[in-house]
Design a protein around this nucleic acid. Sequence first.
DNA 1: TAGATTGTTAATCGATTAACAATC
DNA 2: TAGATTGTTAATCGATTAACAATC
Lengths: 219, 219
Amino acid sequence: MTAKASSDSAREIPEATVARLPVYLRALVTLSDAGTETCSSEELATAAGVNSAKLRKDLSYLGSYGTRGVGYDVDYLRYQIAREIGVTQDWPVVIVGIGNLGHALANYSGFRSRGFRVVALLDADPERHQEVVAGVDVRPFDDLEQIVAEQGVAIGVIATPAVAAQDVANRMVAAGIRSILNFAPVVLAVPDDVDVRKVDLSIELQILAYHEQRKANAS
Amino acid sequence: MTAKASSDSAREIPEATVARLPVYLRALVTLSDAGTETCSSEELATAAGVNSAKLRKDLSYLGSYGTRGVGYDVDYLRYQIAREIGVTQDWPVVIVGIGNLGHALANYSGFRSRGFRVVALLDADPERHQEVVAGVDVRPFDDLEQIVAEQGVAIGVIATPAVAAQDVANRMVAAGIRSILNFAPVVLAVPDDVDVRKVDLSIELQILAYHEQRKANAS
DNA sequence: TAGATTGTTAATCGATTAACAATC
DNA sequence: TAGATTGTTAATCGATTAACAATC
């Protein structure tokens, strides 16, 4: 299959750059909301917390969306980055494990406003199937395959205890999900074509502790 | 001030390695709990989801804790890594912003079991000051300075809405906190000697969406 | 034309990896 | 001694950064 209109977007974008695009997008949304129409790489870089050389290098992978001597049109660049990331469309998401964290995720407004739609909340515990969280019914985990098929779910979020996570991942993969955001503190084994990103609260704290300890020893 | 007993631990450990040490530590805890006494770099690497060359290189920054031809003593290596990270001691933590996410964090058992102790939950909203979450009273945000001083808090967690986050960070820094874990979707401005780590759920989802989009286009 | 700022080049830095000598 | 596995070396790869030519 050949590429459509923007055939140049087939270029390979480095992982480190991909990880920063959402940060730039958010900074642009903030600028746009504040009524700013144009910004320089220096201004945008400051808002995003990086240096301007890195920002310009990153943007250069997407194309040439600025004007020399002038800067970037905020709304135009915002659209181009959103398109590159893929958040001009809506992504149906399913969350599995509706404990404390699952509740927080289901209620997180940042998903909806950034191109993600929570279409289902699943939990293995029948006790929870009475609940409605953030306007969505909690349903049995066994409904996974049906929901994924019906709603075209491409992204799954795992917020279960560690012991259940691998099983949930297996079922997600079998159901056709190829992108997983994992909050359970385990290393998931998945096929090569499945993307897993991990958020681990205690690991983040441990990294802070390491540096904190060094500061304490240095003083 | 000169270093104590283990003067060799003054070596510089690369950031990428520091970020993986907690992963190795967790794998070792799992192995230990399963009764495993010895493991090779190959086994530990598999459990941690990295290749063995990287694991050995990482461990080499800490010292020489294995035995050629044999492997690593699980409990010994576990202790050495825990000591290097700094989680052989207890770190008092304060959480600010007790909404959905703050609740989830306060209840997260992984903190306690990994060397962190939530000593206070703070919220600016007086409505919440009645609450007890995970056995800890929710107190006014204005108590921050006092609590930090009394309890020797070194790590602060920000789980407030985006608009409040910078103010909270400023107050934390003024109170003497030098390590911050930020869940609010904003780039915090802090002095150079303050460490900020960021967890942003929607950014993680956006990175997945980018790759998902590419998979969809490739098919 | 003069000033400003992008997009790109090239140098530097840090992280990963394979291979293997050291050594249990 | 023979087999196994670490710890380290050196090559490779990818990311960052400063500098500046291109160009509005």
